[in-house]
Design a protein around this nucleic acid. Sequence first.
DNA 1: CCGGATCCCCAGAGATACTG
DNA 2: CAGTATCTCTGGGGATCCGG
Lengths: 152, 152
Amino acid sequence: MGKVSNQIETVADAKAIKVQKKLKKVFGHLDPEQPSEVCPIRDILAPVTDKWSILIVLFLGGYSKLRFNQLKKMLYGVSSKSLSERLKWLEKDGYLKREMFSEVPIRVEYQLTDFGLAYLEKLLELTEWINLQVPEVVKRRYQFQQLIKKKE
Amino acid sequence: MGKVSNQIETVADAKAIKVQKKLKKVFGHLDPEQPSEVCPIRDILAPVTDKWSILIVLFLGGYSKLRFNQLKKMLYGVSSKSLSERLKWLEKDGYLKREMFSEVPIRVEYQLTDFGLAYLEKLLELTEWINLQVPEVVKRRYQFQQLIKKKE
DNA sequence: CCGGATCCCCAGAGATACTG
DNA sequence: CAGTATCTCTGGGGATCCGG
């Protein structure tokens, strides 16, 4: 039994070592004392993995072009301020382009760039996977809640 | 030229239609008036795509088991409160398991579950991709900043 | 001592009203 | 219509405390 346990540990450790190599590439720094100037996760990825940014990219993927208020309706619950900020950020990093038409009333259209489309692909892989996991996660949350209740 | 333009639009639209089909699966509701009870993005995915959660999963992937303060050092900048909350959330949803050893001093180890390892795989795909994009994003941010300065 | 929990405080998100 | 301005207030960080 100890042998089996050891084998399992070895497999897990071998896996961990592979991941560590990838981590070094991604972080550049695994030493917290000497963080690299730009952390891919903290500075590049995380700012566009929040709820609104993900929804913006997915909906722009699904509709090609969308106006400000069209997006706002689809992302029900978002404030003008948050939507505006998220759009500005996504534009700044090159995920989407903003086109303004000086008509009356004014019209502004947002559309994914090639870079945005590449990000969309990654997001679709992630969202399709999570979609399959929803029932299990909901179940686990419920079970966890029951455990808390028992303790009280 | 109009013809070329139309072709491009057609290609983009065909792409959009494909994405729309996937969106319907992921959202369950594309009608904001009738949002589904559980939105995979808002309720299941987004809570674990924040900066700290991503880093936690990646580091647990790289080290198999980690104690609270080990994690805290690796995630330099995180507060005990935030780390504690994120760990609790990730445990609740089944990404990791928490093992407590009633020694003196107390020892608590965190380790990814199979579900957590599956999520790790998805995160690695995403982070390896973003890692390749870092230079371009940094460049675009700089250029955007220059544009703002010019306007001022 | 370690792993949090608690309290306090502030930046940032949200709601509302307003404007080019 | 597409945002800003303003106010509010919650969520997250820092410091401190505490049970095991």
